Amino acid sequence: MPITHQRERVVLEVIATTVADAQAAARGGADRLELVTAMGEGGLTPSIGMIEAVVEAVTIPVNVIVRPHSRSFIYDSNDYSVMLLDVRAAKRAGANAVVIGMLTPSHEVDRDGLQRAIDAADGMPLTFHRAFDEARDLPEALDVLLGFEAVTNVLTSGGKPSVLDAQAQIETLVQRAAHTHCTVLAGAGLTVDRVADFVSATRVRAVHFGSGVRVDGKGLAPVDENKVRRVRTLLDA
């Protein structure tokens, strides 16, 4: 009898901005949510009420972005005070993880700031978000993040506006993170039509969808449950 190897399921993460988004994504087969507000600004910290309501409304993990403003990913002491309060509040509200990222003025990972966020998270895992794509050297930035056990995902478009234009970069990062505690989460610009080829080409094990699974592909439109279901079917095929 031939030995069959079960292929690891590709994780599907979907951005939610409302309770209805969260429920539609969950019904469509998303494995996990990234909960944000102000999607037009790249995602900012949602309200505590929103976090609690979404956690209550779905059974899949809810990862919550902690980002105090959209000016930059370089934060001052006041920003950190707010972010650490939000990390603790998100955990109390039932978040599975926080999605966070911070850079130094020279566009390297802000290790001290990251460690403070990890300490505030008190055992809750972190996804390092697309601040990563503004780092001056992506492989070097990934190596830094691999040094933090609490960072279990790195959301990246490979340094390009659309991840579909960064297949080689994503493939390199996936290889670099192989056999570590950290998963490369590919996102920004993914579409239903191209996700299967992209996953095959890059060997990425986790994908992140925003506009690509929304009505008419518009960022401020609701999540389209059928598009989520189609992506899930393609990933499982």
Rank of each mutant, 00 (worst) to 15 (best):
V144K: 03
K160H: 11
L164H: 05
R130M: 13
D143L: 10
V87S: 01
T172V: 10
L173T: 01
R116W: 13
L146K: 03
L155H: 02
G113Q: 04
Q169W: 06
S157E: 05
A141R: 00
H107N: 13
A117P: 00
H129I: 13
T183Y: 03
V184D: 01
N96V: 03
A135W: 05
V151A: 02
A168Q: 15
F73Q: 01
A93T: 03
I100A: 02
I74Y: 03
G113R: 00
R111E: 15
S162Y: 09
N78E: 13
V151N: 00
T127Y: 09
G94T: 10
D119M: 14
A131N: 10
D133K: 07
G159F: 06
L155M: 07
L173A: 02
D143R: 12
G159N: 05
D110F: 05
L84Y: 07
S77L: 14
A168T: 14
A131V: 11
H107S: 11
V99Y: 04
L164C: 08
H181D: 05
R136H: 14
R111V: 13
H107I: 06
L114R: 01
R176D: 06
R136T: 14
F132M: 15
Q175E: 15
H181M: 03
V98L: 06
K160R: 14
N153D: 15
V154L: 07
S81A: 13
G123K: 11
A150M: 09
R92K: 11
F73S: 00
V99T: 08
L138K: 04
T127I: 10
A177W: 06
T156I: 06
A117N: 01
L164A: 07
A177K: 03
R88E: 12
D110M: 04
V87L: 06
D137A: 12
A93K: 00
D165G: 01
F132V: 09
P139I: 10
D137K: 07
V144D: 07
T172W: 04
V144G: 01
L185H: 05
G158V: 05
E140W: 13
A117T: 04
S157L: 03
T152Q: 07
D86Q: 15
Q115V: 12
L85T: 12
H129Y: 14
L126I: 13
L185Q: 02
T127V: 14
V109M: 06
L126M: 12
E149K: 09
E140Y: 15
H179F: 15
Q115H: 13
D76R: 05
T183V: 14
C182G: 00
M102E: 03
T172A: 15
D79E: 06
R176K: 14
A93I: 07
T183G: 00
K160C: 09
G158A: 09
I170C: 02
H107R: 12
T104L: 05
S106L: 14
I100L: 12
I170T: 00
L145Y: 04
S162R: 12
H129K: 15
A93H: 04
P125A: 13
M124Q: 08
R136Y: 13
L138Y: 06
V87M: 04
L145Q: 00
A141F: 09
